[in-house]
Design a protein around this nucleic acid. Structure first.
Length: 235
DNA sequence: AACAGGGGCAACCGCCGTCGA
DNA sequence: TTCGACGGCGGTTGCCCCTGT
């Protein structure tokens, strides 16, 4: 499913992320935030480029991510916003709480594109009905905002029943678990609380092993105080 | 049972906008 | 004003898995 890990000529690791790398990245961002993606891998002890770390975090590791099947309502919103804005995936993602632009982009290309293409012949609602949206009603523009809110609310309700540790297993790269799980932690408190839960999911020596970054911090690379006084400003 | 082709999705690449020096 | 660093975005790629033959 993913590219096999390899090292480029600069010694930078590419390809699929390992569980250990995920742990390092999660723990580092959890602890220090991500003030500088380019420097982050060096301090976190990762042989990745900053962009790769950012992408992994934004699309996969950060809290509040919602994974798994799209609801018909989400389909509606994507279709509608794509019609309005085109391939502005980040814009569309803003209206689908917990979905990433990358995920929406993939979903569009693999699922929804064909329905828009067939739109030339049939209406959008016909297509959506055909894919199983039983209570489908073509929403008004005003209603769409409300629908987005509903999705947000449902995410919250799901998240309250969902443990972060469920999704931070080695199967983070396993597609089967992706479809079954969500990473909905829509409230900040829940995110923090869940990260504490996450701690227990890691091996003991992982947390007792000091970060490379910790040494770096001692070398005045990081304004550590500001990050320690503004915990989790990033999410 | 074996094979081929397509689908799905994580990850990479390159471009662009923003910001600070 | 210019330039470099950085983050963000959209397009594309690579590869595993599933399904049909």
């Amino acid at each position: 499913m993913v590219r096999a890990p390899y090292f480029d000529k600069n010694g930078t690791k590419k390809g699929a992320w390992s569980e250990e790398e995920d742990k390092k990245l999660i723990a580092y961002v959890h602890k220090y935030g991500h003030p500088n993606w380019r420097q982050l891998p060096k301090f976190a002890g990762l042989q990745r480029c900053g962009k790769s770390c950012r992408l992994r975090w934004m699309n996969y590791l950060r809290p509040n991510l919602k994974r798994g099947n799209y609801t018909p309502k989400e389909d509606e919103i994507i279709m509608d916003l794509h019609q309005k804005h085109g391939n502005k995936w980040s814009l569309i993602a803003e209206s689908l709480h917990g979905r990433t632009d990358n995920e929406i982009k993939n979903y569009w290309h693999s699922h929804l594109k064909k329905f828009q293409n067939s739109n030339n012949n049939t209406s959008c609602d016909e297509d959506l009905k055909s894919i199983g949206c039983k209570d489908f009603e073509m929403p008004t523009n005003e209603a769409l905002g409300v629908e987005s809110l509903h999705i947000l609310e449902s995410s919250v309700s799901i998240s309250s029943e969902t443990s972060y540790t469920d999704h931070n297993s080695p199967s983070l790269s396993s597609s089967s678990s992706h479809t079954e799980s969500t990473m909905n932690l829509c409230k900040e408190e829940e995110s923090v609380a869940s990260l504490e839960t996450l701690d227990s999911g890691f091996s003991n020596n992982f947390w007792t092993e000091p970060f490379i970054s910790e040494n770096a911090l001692n070398q005045d690379y990081f304004p550590i105080s500001s990050y320690m006084t503004e915990p989790f400003y990033l999410w």
